[in-house]
């Protein structure tokens, strides 16, 4: 599970180790990556909203 989160975060940042990429594409299910991606994207939007709200107070 932690490995999937790390891979999704690496994708957000845009940099990934070649070894990890090979591993992700040979093992694990795509559904896990897609769901984690959606959850983390929502979390990112909420985080940005929070920062913006705090900064504009």
């Amino acid at each position: 599970m932690w490995g999937v989160v790390k891979s999704v975060l690496a994708a957000f940042f845009g940099v990934q180790k070649e070894r990890q990429r090979q591993h992700d594409f040979s093992e694990g299910k795509p559904v896990a990556f897609i769901m984690t991606g959606i959850v983390l994207a929502v979390a990112l939007v909420i985080a940005i909203l929070l920062v913006a709200t705090l900064a504009s107070r």
């Binding site: 940042f13 845009g14 940099v15 990934q16 180790k17 070649e18």
Partner: peptide
């Protein structure tokens, strides 16, 4: 060389 993770992290 094909890729270099440290350099890529820096330039991002």
């Amino acid at each position: 060389f094909h890729e270099h993770t440290t350099v890529e992290i820096f330039w991002t």
